[in-house]
Amino acid sequence: MQTVHIEFMVNGKEVALDVPAGATALQVIREMLGLKGSKEGCGIGECGACTVVVDGKAVNACLLLAAQLDGCRLLTVEGLADPAGLHPLQEKMIEHHAVQCGFCTPGVLMSSYALFAEKANPKREEIVAAVAGNLCRCTGYQQIITAIEAAVPGENR
């Protein structure tokens, strides 16, 4: 088995790993880094439960080759909160009852985080488009969208 040496940032910390050439980023995140917040729901990019943010963009970790993380900045759900407290997205998800079974929640948070990084004042339609790749079978999305809207960082809120 060929391994590939990669160096990248995980939630603000530098890491260096030798990863199997055929491993997915999701396998490495969960099994080598022990960050279990990113979930495998389908393994083929259809559910979004494994969504992480790489260099500011939301991607499906199951469709990313781990070797491709080399030199990147990776943010997982574990990196959202800081010592001062929860990220506003996390707070609003709780406050607006947007969490039911919680399996889709990390992915939804990461997609929303990437949206906010790109746009300070996304409209509701833009929020819907940003999380349309995050399937949820519990909530019907309404409370999720409302929570994300409530967490929008821009001044127009």
């Binding site: 279990k36 917040g37 990113s38 959202l80 709780i94 009852h97 969490v99 919680g102």
Partner: peptide, 15 residues
């Protein structure tokens, strides 16, 4: 508010 929601938004809920 939901019991367990905090763990879930932190990615810390244990499935």
């Amino acid at each position: 508010l939901r019991k367990g929601a905090r763990e879930k938004v932190l990615g810390a809920a244990v499935f």
